[in-house]
Design a protein around this nucleic acid. Structure first.
Length: 112
DNA sequence: GGAACGGCTAAGG
DNA sequence: GCCTTAGCCGTTC
């Protein structure tokens, strides 16, 4: 496994403070792979889902819901199960969501 | 080792 | 403003 990438992603996401959000693109940039936005999202889901125990603790701390698309759309996230309450979660964090799951990046985007 | 998939993005129509 | 096309990347089968 190449944990380099995914691990880094996880760490970055973890470090997003409450009330803030980030985008896949931005994370990708931080990783020096501006094009890897997709891989970023993928890494997140894989990591949550999967495998090694030590990671799990790390993974659980990853606020996937705080990661949104560059457009401000929340996107997919939460591959685990159950209906996702991104809107609710994010609102709880103090983030205003537009009618259709859109976050105001100008206000809540967390720059690393 | 190779092909397909996905929580994406930016550009065009 | 909405939909399609193409590109890029890591992970998984």
């Amino acid at each position: 496994m190449k944990l380099d990438f995914s691990t880094k992603v996880l760490q970055i996401v973890k470090k997003i403070p409450k009330g803030k959000v980030s985008t896949y693109a931005l994370i990708a940039k931080v990783l020096n792979n501006p094009k890897a936005s997709r891989a970023v999202g993928n890494a997140l889901k894989s990591n949550k889902k999967s495998y090694q125990n030590e990671r799990i603790s790390l993974l659980e701390k990853v606020p996937c819901h705080r990661v949104v698309r560059s457009d401000g759309y929340v996107g997919g996230y939460c591959g685990v199960n159950k209906s996702i309450k991104k809107k609710e979660i994010l609102s709880k964090e103090g983030i205003s969501i537009s009618d259709d799951k859109i976050v105001d990046l100008d206000k809540y985007l967390y720059k690393f």
